[in-house]
Structure formats: structure tokens, C-alpha cells
Design a protein around this nucleic acid. Structure first.
Lengths: 234, 234
DNA sequence: CAGTGGTCTAGACCACGGG
DNA sequence: CCGTGGTCTAGACCACTGG
């Protein structure tokens, strides 16, 4: 029985392939039929099969190589996706009313470690912003940020009392790529007074470096209030 | 001048569109030309433009809707990707020699919160595994896990002294989906003795629930040693 | 209702890389 | 070498949804 159902979309092919993988009909490490064969069996064009299998390969369930064909991954390295939104939107999505308060705005020099992460020369012209984000009036996350003024000269005159640097940069910076580093640390002397918790309380810390297409833009350290959970689906 | 270069692949179209977005030639919030127009301008088929713009939409830089057309996102919600690998592979990728030690294997009942996260009925038959993963002989992460024996009956007789439950499940479980929750907590009395740090030391904690296509599979709490950093690129 | 993106098709050529 | 996936094309129909 070679012929099967017809009018299959790539989603149907994707689901059928996923079913065969999970049902072990296609065992881990083994080859699966070629695109041409599958297209014939399932009654659709090869491009449709290609689209479906490409999605599964992107998800880490299949490994595809020219000439070698397609095989089921032995150890499926699934990928979790984390959407990087505005802090205010993140707070709203948790069902709380977002708030914001600027704590300080000065020319405190960027520490060497952060400066190296951005690839800036010593003595680079930077602006420091310290702020607090609130959820229903309670401290949510403490922000300590340096902005590279060579890349964002307008930041020198921007009003970070009304709009957070987070949002201002997202609206004005030609964002290209960056790095995220989460760690667990003590809240610390700098953030604790604003968070309403003892300095030694464990806190989730996010350090982010952001780069535009041509220049480094900003480095920020976010210290979250106790109880923060970073949730992802897989 | 309508005509342009020819023989453009979808990657070239993708890069050109990205350039126009970052250069503000296509301003945030504004509409961009339709697929047909772009295909004509760039000298390629509409399907090629579609592939390129779909990638940009998946990345959060464009918003596409039928009839309404395609517009540049006001606030680009970029997505970070986290690949979920074996703990041993994670340790190796950090340049260290992985180690593993089983601490306990018993029938300690699954606590209610974890049981609810998996959607299991009270009194569900579970297996508890406690283990320690090492990097170059030093504690790396402490693991406390419950396995749903109704979904994975073979786990009852598996040898978790040699192969970690992590790897065993990845090889034997028809993994479908799950949730991840990172938080910062004190290391705690249960994990601290194995980690070689005081119980109140801040630790990154990962709680994961994993489901197969039909049944919940496992719930695990990973307590990382101090200094752990979760790194992601954008 | 009409315009836009979403998708499918049949065919073609090409690039990679296993044997 | 030559088979397999990667991609492009021209055309077509469809689904959704804004006006």
C-alpha cells in the first residue's frame, strides 16, 4: 500500500512524522525515508515534506545532511524559547500594574569587566542609569545600566525619569544582537535598600550586553526581587 | 529603477530586509511593500520573499497579517534560545570532565505541589532519584527527581548508578513537551552537604516538568553550585 | 468583497559530502 | 561520482480579515 491520504499540508506531514518519532516507528539514530519517498507515500509535493522535516530538524528532533539523508536524533536536544519583552510588559503579563522610578543618572565610569564585555576602550564616554521597576507598587527589579554614548548620542538628553532606559533604547537603538547571563547571587548592598529585603537574600541576576549592527549599545544588570521565577516552555 | 540584482537567495533577501529595518529605511510601525512588489524589485520569486520575511517575523522583527500586510514591529520582541542538553554534555561544553554519583533511590512520595504540576492523582506510583553531577570532581548540580512509573515502568529496574536518570529518560522516554522554571534560592539543607557550601548560599534552581505525548513523565529540581551562570545569545 | 499573506505543486538546478 | 537535501521558480488556490 503505497498510496495514502491526499491534500496534506506541511503541518499534517509534520505531525505525522512527529507521531512516528514518538511512537518509535522511526527509532532514534535510524534513517527515515527520503523526501521523495515520503512525498509519494503521503501524497504531497517534496517541498511540503521538506518544510515539515525542516521544522523538526530546527526543533532538534531530526538531523539532516545532504547525501547522508535524515535520521532521528539519538538525544533530542530540545530548545526552549525565551521572549525578551519590555520589563513593563513582563510585569503586566503577570497580572500586575507596572511602575517605574529613576534612582540615579550620572557619569559613573563603567567597570572594566562590563567595559570589556562591550568591547569598549578605556575612558569610553558612558551614561549610567539606576532605576527601579515596580509591580503593584512593590519592588520588582533593580536596574543598573551603562549606555555607550558614542553609539547613542541622543541618550545624553533623553528623559529617563518618564520612560525607562529599557523602553527608550528599544525604541531608538538599532538592536542587532546580544548576550544574556542569568545567575543567582546575594541581593547586595546596592540593590537591597530598594528591594526591601536583606542584602544576603538570594536574588536572580540578569546581566545583558546589547550590540547594534556597528557599535556596542548598552550593558545592564537586573537584580530581581526574591520570589522571581523565569518561566519557559519547551 | 525597478529592476535590481538577480539570483538572490532567501538569505540575501532576509539580510537586505534586515538591513533596511536596522537602517530605519523601513521605520518601526510602518508598512513594508507587499511580497509581490518586493519580489519584482529584488528580482526573485514571491516564495523566496515569503521565506525571508517569515524568518524575520519568527524572530519578532516583523508582524504579518493577511490583508493587513507586513509592518515593522514597534518594539522588537527578540527571542533567546536555550538548548536543553544532557547535564554531562553541558559540563563537557564548559571544558570540564563530567562525573556522576547516585545519592539515593527510594519510594519517597512526590510532594503535592510537584504532583499537581504533573497532573498526577494522589498516591501515584513514583520513583525518587537523588544524585549529584560533578565537573572536574567538584559538585556541579544536585538533582532531586520523581519519575512517574505508570508512564515509565522500565525505570523500576533501570540502573541509575551508572547512567544518570537524566540520560536514561532522554533515551527511553517519548519526550513531547514540558515546562522550565528558574529561580534563585538558598541552597538549602538537602543540597548543601553535597555542594560544599553553606545552606544559605544563593543557588540557581531549575524546576522542570516533562510530559510525553500521553502521560506525565518526570519532575526534577536541579540545584546548581554557586557561580553557575545560565548563558544565552540573542 | 477584495487584497494580502499562507501554502501547495511540479519541475528544475545546485551544493554538499558519503562511498 | 552521484544521491540527498537545499533552494528557486512560476503559477495557482485558499484563508483570513480589513474596509
Amino acid at each position: 500500500m503505497a498510496a495514502r491520504a491526499q491534500n496534506l499540508g506541511w503541518r499534517a506531514v509534520h505531525d505525522e512524522a512527529l507521531r512516528r518519532i514518538q511512537a518509535r516507528e522511526w527509532a532514534p539514530g535510524t534513517m527515515i525515508p527520503g523526501e521523495e519517498d515520503l512525498a509519494t507515500e503521503l501524497g504531497c509535493a517534496r517541498a511540503t515534506v521538506n518544510r515539515a522535516l525542516r521544522e523538526l530538524a530546527d526543533a532538534g528532533l531530526l538531523e539532516r545532511r545532504r547525501k547522508a539523508g535524515t535520521r532521528v536524533a539519538e538525544l533530542p536536544n530540545r530548545r526552549a524559547h525565551l521572549s525578551i519583552a519590555l520589563i513593563a510588559e513582563e510585569i503586566e503579563s503577570r497580572g500586575a500594574r507596572p511602575g517605574y522610578a529613576l534612582i540615579a543618572r550620572d557619569n559613573a565610569p563603567i567597570p572594566p569587566a562590563q567595559r570589556h564585555a562591550l568591547g569598549l576602550a578605556p575612558g569610553a564616554d558612558t551614561l549610567r542609569i539606576e532605576a527601579l521597576h515596580l509591580a503593584d507598587g512593590r519592588p520588582y527589579v533593580h536596574e543598573n545600566r551603562w549606555i555607550n554614548l558614542a553609539a547613542m548620542p541622543l541618550a545624553r538628553t533623553a528623559d529617563f525619569a518618564m520612560m525607562s532606559a529599557n523602553e527608550w533604547l528599544l525604541r531608538h537603538a538599532p538592536f542587532a544582537h546580544g548576550t544574556l547571563d542569568y545567575s543567582a547571587e546575594a541581593t547586595g548592598e546596592a540593590a537591597a535598600p530598594h528591594m526591601g529585603c536583606p542584602p544576603q537574600a538570594p536574588a536572580m541576576v540578569l546581566e545583558r550586553a546589547t550590540f547594534g549592527p556597528d557599535h556596542p549599545i548598552t550593558w545592564v544588570r537586573l537584580t530581581y526581587a526574591p520570589g522571581y521565577r523565569l518561566h519557559m516552555d519547551i
